[in-house]
């Protein structure tokens, strides 16, 4: 979890001319993207721009048709023909979803221990120990025996974060993690993410929280129509966008 910038020259994610189609719709167009360990990348763009699809390609939840993706030395091939590499990548890449996707039939603690036990083959005691630590870290330790439906949205999303971290991922993907939350619960989830970023986790975040992006991102990427239109530091993208489409988008979402 502490991959500092010492080996920052070697990217942990490399997307190379990735193209994806939904039928005749060209949802990702020649995506080239390199992310180095420890980097926090925030992807912004209108809904339907392809930003969620892009990060879902990184852990193979979406197939792509052309190009190739390399995650920590494991290669994803077009048309889902990646074989073992896919599962290796998924054990190393954590994901937090917009709708939390907690397992409703399992207690909060069992949500967190399931994958370490079944995938990492940890014994239950060790997995529980890790789960308890992570739940404490995201401030849910007193709710560990409850079921997800008994928790607020913000609490559920923090459990989802703990669940992903239990696999000790080298990279975390966030797919609009606060979009399904009531406004008063957004802060607690962003706080947990901020803490994770400060610890040096490599993160790719799709979000509409521009304030958070500005504060936490090392790099902001603006996507439009399946293409990376502009990218740079938050300062560059938010305060001095070069592309007209970026300017339009930001003027619509930033109400200064």
């Amino acid at each position: 979890m502490n991959h500092s910038n010492s080996n920052s020259s070697k990217p942990i994610v490399r997307m190379d001319k990735v193209n994806k189609y939904f039928g005749s719709l060209h949802v990702l167009q020649d995506i080239d993207l390199e992310i180095v360990p420890g980097e926090v990348v925030v992807i912004i763009g209108a809904s339907g721009s392809g930003k969620s699809t892009l990060i879902r390609c990184v852990n193979g939840l979406e197939e792509f048709q052309q190009g190739h993706i390399e995650v920590d030395g494991n290669e994803l091939l077009p048309h889902g023909k990646s074989g073992r590499a896919l599962q290796t990548i998924r054990t190393e890449v954590g994901m937090v979803f917009q709708q939390f996707n907690l397992f409703p039939h399992l207690s909060v603690r069992d949500n967190v221990t399931l994958a370490p036990i079944k995938v990492r083959q940890l014994d239950r005691d060790r997995a529980t120990e890790i789960a308890n630590k992570l739940l404490e870290r995201v401030g849910i330790s007193d709710q560990a025996d409850k079921y997800p439906s008994q928790l607020s949205g913000g609490q559920q999303q923090r459990v989802a974060l703990a669940r992903a971290l239990a696999m000790e991922p080298r990279l975390m993907l966030f797919d609009e993690p606060t979009s399904a939350l009531d406004p008063e619960m957004i802060g607690e989830v962003l706080d947990a993410m901020r803490e994770l970023a400060n610890e040096g986790m490599t993160m790719i975040i799709v979000t509409h929280e521009m304030g958070f992006a500005r504060e936490v991102a090392d790099r902001v990427i603006y996507i439009h129509g399946g293409q990376i239109v502009e990218q740079g530091s938050p300062l560059e993208v938010f305060d001095n966008p070069q592309n007209e489409r970026t300017q339009n988008f930001l003027s619509r979402v930033l109400k200064h």
Binding site: Q87, R90, T91, V93, Q99, L102, A115, K118
Partner: peptide, 21 residues
């Protein structure tokens, strides 16, 4: 919901494990 399977797969579970558990 499809998200249940996706959450399982994203944690590294195989398709069979995601189904079973």
């Amino acid at each position: 919901e499809r998200g249940q399977r996706e959450a399982g797969l994203s944690l590294g579970l195989s398709r069979t494990q995601a189904f079973r558990y």
